[in-house]
Simulated assay, not measured.
Amino acid sequence: MKEMLSKIISKLSQGRILVIGDLVIDEMIYGATHRLSREAPVLILRHQRADIILGGGANAAHNVSKLNAKRTTIVGVSGKDYYCSLLMDALQRDGIDTAGLIQDEDRPTSTKTRISGIANHSVTQQIVRIDRESSAPISAQIENRMLDTLTRLAPNFDAMLLSDYGLGVFTPAVIAHCQALAKKHGLIMAVDSQQDLSAFQGATVLTPNQPEAEKNVGYDLHTPENVQQAGKDLLAKTSADSVLITRGESGMTLFESLGNPSQPKATDIPVFNHSEVFDVTGAGDTVVGTLTLALTAGASLLEASILGNLAASIVVKRFGAATTNPQELQAALDSVDESLLNRVSSGILSA
């Protein structure tokens, strides 16, 4: 198993992924406390720096780009405003092709601005967050441009990764077009959605986290029996080939339909490389990005899920929407007990 996973890691750079989704930037503004304002009882910060980090579907694209030598293109919608220029700069900085970016002057570029301050001998603390976004569905005109863009770009890729943050890009027409293009061109279709998973029929793999899975099935997943039932219900609801439920410190559970969604193959994947978790922000983007690339490299769904698990174990040790690369992924794999990998691949649930 370990040798096979190493071979897959060595081929990640060959995959061509088209990422479709809700594009977000995280604007991080930092300053040092200066004094109280005379205008109002508020702190004045002396500006130190501002960082622009890719979020939402753009973070999924960033994760893919770091793993596949910048062979990644995005399709999404931004505003036609100041923050669009910041988004474009960040995408180009991180090696993501912007050929599919569509500007809509009637929408804002989705931006989350976090303002953080630091005082002498203290830690940096977030003071306020400002969100600029619209969750309204894209207009018919922008939708048509998206459909044309997808038609033009899809034949050049091995897989489509749909990253749905509920910000209006995934209209029924856009989803249906993605499904049709995936079928026509034989593309892998991976879906990471915070919304109703039944809208994404026939995906290769769905990657809900536990709260998203619970929202879709209508009951909690606090028992192994409920997790097993949720896998069956999600497969039946979506006609997907597989569902990977990410469950935090409980690891992941992969359900493969294999033509019989009422009796799927279920495999528990434990958390590898246990360590202190600093930040789970964006870990789902890391999982789906790594998994999708691994599938393009010839991995089975289980092998791809294990690599997604390993990649997530790296990024949760870092603050913010972090990424990893093939060298780090290989190092993480090297540190895993081979017998544990073999037990997982054999379907033996105890570690």
Rank of each mutant, 00 (worst) to 15 (best):
S139G: 10
N156A: 12
D192H: 04
L254E: 05
A299C: 04
H222D: 06
G100A: 06
A173M: 10
I269K: 00
G308E: 04
H47A: 09
A299E: 09
L254D: 06
D89L: 13
T171L: 04
F272R: 06
D104G: 01
V271Q: 10
R46Q: 14
E39Y: 10
I8V: 15
T223G: 02
E212S: 05
R16P: 00
S300L: 09
N325D: 15
G308P: 01
D81F: 02
L244W: 03
I115C: 04
Q195S: 10
V77S: 13
R46K: 14
L18Q: 03
K265Y: 02
N226V: 00
D164L: 12
Q92Y: 03
S339P: 02
H274F: 09
Q229T: 12
M1V: 11
V77L: 14
L101Q: 08
I74G: 05
E256G: 02
G284C: 02
R114M: 06
Q179H: 06
Q126W: 13
R38A: 13
M28Q: 15
R152M: 07
K183L: 07
K7D: 13
S10E: 14
C84I: 06
I53S: 08
K7G: 15
A283E: 09
A61L: 00
D148A: 15
S85C: 12
E328C: 09
V205Q: 02
P41E: 11
G218R: 14
S110E: 09
I188R: 02
K2T: 06
V64E: 01
D196V: 11
S13T: 10
I130T: 08
A322M: 14
I314F: 05
Q330G: 11
D192K: 00
S242K: 02
S10R: 15
D337R: 07
L310T: 05
A176C: 00
C178F: 01
I175M: 08
E105Q: 12
D233F: 04
A213V: 08
R49F: 00
F278I: 12
I102C: 04
D106L: 11
T290Y: 02
D268T: 12
L23N: 06
V277M: 11
N260Y: 03
D334G: 01
G218H: 14
L244E: 05
T109G: 05
S65H: 07
N156H: 12
P264S: 11
L349D: 14
A203T: 04
S313P: 05
H274V: 07
D241R: 14
G289N: 05
N144I: 08
K2C: 05
V42N: 06
S275N: 13
L18M: 05
I314V: 08
D26S: 10
